[in-house]
Design a protein around this nucleic acid. Sequence first.
DNA 1: TTAATCTATACTAAATTGGTAGGGTATGTT
DNA 2: AACATACCCTACCAATTTAGTATAGATTAA
Lengths: 129, 129
Amino acid sequence: MKFSAQTEYGLKAMVNLAQAKSKTKAIKVIAKEEMVSVKYLEKILNILRKFDLVESFKGTNGGYALKKPASKISVGEIVIALEGPIEPMKCVGKACCMEEACSLKSVWTLLGKQIEKTLKDIKLSHLIK
Amino acid sequence: MKFSAQTEYGLKAMVNLAQAKSKTKAIKVIAKEEMVSVKYLEKILNILRKFDLVESFKGTNGGYALKKPASKISVGEIVIALEGPIEPMKCVGKACCMEEACSLKSVWTLLGKQIEKTLKDIKLSHLIK
DNA sequence: TTAATCTATACTAAATTGGTAGGGTATGTT
DNA sequence: AACATACCCTACCAATTTAGTATAGATTAA
């Protein structure tokens, strides 16, 4: 019941960008500040870009920037992008959900929705000092 | 962000026990009903026993039973026993939490508490028909 | 005694995750 | 046009975790 390191680095990069002074910030600089390899961070930012959470600019003085204002980006969006949809239980058992009304399914549905709500209510702007 | 198969089987076994007619129920029977191998289920029930959630009786007509009434056992207890404490982020990054006030820590603390509360409010007795 | 049951440890195979490597492709500046 | 800077893409590998099996042994009711 943990989020992955990828999600941690991604979130920290987003907070980093939210606090950036300049219009764009080079991945090399972010990677150094967050103490993660450039290559690994590239992969993570790539995912975030596909989810329209950041945008990138090539060429000299290029770099990354938030696609939307920090107050419009929730922690939930970032987590879902990097972690996949929040479904606390995959129901791997052969006997699971064979009955029309699986007694446990309601637990996971409720829990998943509550987690999503909590994370969507926390905006990136709440995390910068 | 998922619970393990072990947790699924453990929960289903607990629900199974909560619905049992007899005083004790043999692991062989539970395993058959939940479609999981006896050996694997043994391991899981072993953990639950150490957490005082079930008790076991040896010998002929032995088996497993809930240690407490189903209304006094929460889904949260079972999940924590099988899954470990709920800490959504382990903070693996070298740069993490080096500052006195890690901006993300508050997110994980809040989320963890909410998940625990949700799961602790759901009792085993709520899951039986 | 004996058969049914639980207990404990060790092992393995598959999946996931974390992270690396290398070679491209696009673009702004000179 | 050339070059340096920066992003993009795919493949790969090693470590960890997870799911599940196997073997052997100890306890107890009948």
